[in-house]
Design a protein around this nucleic acid. Sequence first.
DNA 1: TCCCGAAGTTCGATTTAAATG
DNA 2: GCATTTAAATCGAACTTCGGG
Lengths: 358, 358
Amino acid sequence: MKLSGNGSRVTIRDIARESNVSVSAVSLVLNNAPLSRYIPATTKKRIQGAARKLGYSPNQLARALRSRRNSTIGLMVFDITDPFCTPILRGIERGLYALSHLSILTDAHNERKRFERYMEMLLERRIEGMIVIANWLFVDINLLADLQKQSIPAVVIGRELKINAISSVMVDNEAGGRIAMEHLYSLGHRKIAFIRGPKVLSDTGQRWQGVKSFAASVGLSIDSKLVVDLPNSFDPNHGFETGAKLTEELMTRKRPFTALMAFDDITALGAMHALTKASIRVPEQCSVIGFDDVAPAALSIPPLTTVRQPLEIMGETAADIIAGAMNAVVERRPFQAVHLRLLPELIVRRSTRLPSTK
Amino acid sequence: MKLSGNGSRVTIRDIARESNVSVSAVSLVLNNAPLSRYIPATTKKRIQGAARKLGYSPNQLARALRSRRNSTIGLMVFDITDPFCTPILRGIERGLYALSHLSILTDAHNERKRFERYMEMLLERRIEGMIVIANWLFVDINLLADLQKQSIPAVVIGRELKINAISSVMVDNEAGGRIAMEHLYSLGHRKIAFIRGPKVLSDTGQRWQGVKSFAASVGLSIDSKLVVDLPNSFDPNHGFETGAKLTEELMTRKRPFTALMAFDDITALGAMHALTKASIRVPEQCSVIGFDDVAPAALSIPPLTTVRQPLEIMGETAADIIAGAMNAVVERRPFQAVHLRLLPELIVRRSTRLPSTK
DNA sequence: TCCCGAAGTTCGATTTAAATG
DNA sequence: GCATTTAAATCGAACTTCGGG
């Protein structure tokens, strides 16, 4: 029963010897396979007892080689440093755990080369499915084409692809823009400044669409002098500084505004920083609203009002989709990719209030 | 060359047939094994060409089964939601990538059952090594004993174990406490309040030791009325609220203080929140210093002065240690566990300044 | 004896097909 | 989905052995 320290392991052969049956019988019993139905209960007990006694741990590598299932999925993140990822990862983990699947985590650092290398490694390990978290993604995601060829199901979180065969889960950006705008408007704000996202991101256009549609519905006109954009060359790790800088620029334009809507929370925090530095108090003199509801949003002073993406649920949903698709693959059923848009939720904290009447 | 969509793959056998050699030759050439030395360059080219042409992707499951190496390590986190983890994960990833290793990510949610289940799954996949990120760890970590028995090397980040056989990488907490104290003292602060960590955490005692030793060295006495502790039942997800509450309690004691040292950044942010709410301006009327330098620390208003743990480096170091130990295992060399204590660094931002002379 | 490459065994499990009382 | 059990082939690659120039 002592294991020789060099890593040698107990195999079903050992169990077979110990319990005086064949390896096949052991395999059948331990897997509770249909064929084990008629093996006497006493024999089963004996086999299971031997397995426990010897401290048997099934070698999933061997099992996977034979059965072509390894219950492992690949996880690709584009920057794990982004607080946007964490809740999603938590959601995925929760979903996968329930299904007894494990995931290999890779981080592309937003570099194409790294993405490709990791993809290759994951494929060599014969992952059964793939989840991609597309936070800040400038990489050509057609790189996922390899997956299709091998009929490995995939889900992208946070972005929708042209390739219809790949499922996607994302927030309804247009609704989010509308909700944020509605909140500011109903508080009484009419002069609103905007820091939009980089043009290359589709989220940017979608959220702006929501803003515009709400504005139109209430007859509010948007002052184009109060709109600035994050540059396409934007480095998400500098969202704070960039948000601050753009806010300063907005202030130099000498167009008064009582509220500011930022593309995301980090940008919003940068904006709050710049406003505070310019002795403009938030929210008394200027309201600020963000987007995402990442962790730091709740910790700022004042806590940030924002539009929450249901990140954890998005992750869990992706896990469920992948699991379903994986089952379809092994059962040789066709699987229809799904494209989900989840509704965002307004989280009112302390960074917004009615405009000062002064 | 077209792959039949059902997931069938190219094997070395196919390559052998395509290039008119034996499978052994293919294996030797593709792995650049010593024995391939004498195979003519033209044959090599032919084999490699065939591999590329057929889109060969080596099956790492089969390879691992045979060679007993799968270049995969297990990663156990106790709560991925904690911003403390992210930079460490980045560091680990960076280290592992350089070595072409992959990692399976698991999250114990601070639950013993989950920890055990994941451990079992990782063992079944025959991981070659294990890294544990022990942020907020109340679980009995002796659960790692299984690893030893199987001679799987392990590293714990953020905590030192009694089991000497398991390596550890952590910050020098005592130095951290000293540095923070020295910073406040040299600014001129003499009345300093403290929010210490939970008593069960060894970090708490170590940091406090640093604080006391510095205080003694300059002849400063610490007012015990200005010291409060995070409860042992502390839920790390409520650090912000708890920090705020304890700060309010400190203020009710009517003992003036010009600076506050918190156990970690999140607690410090909570403290700043409470101070601001009580109309005490930070840093003008009260300085605040944190510990860790997690991401939100740089985003607060004012940005938080803190003692930085070299998190990313800790992760990268752990990866290197594990890789070294893994090599030792396959080469049947003995491996001596290492216990590293890395130096923290003072990061001065805007939440500390000299005390008001009023 | 040396060089090259073929053939066969092994890793640990699953699964089919066939032998058994 | 009728009776039980087991030998043998298989998954894909690595490695040992051996025979032919």
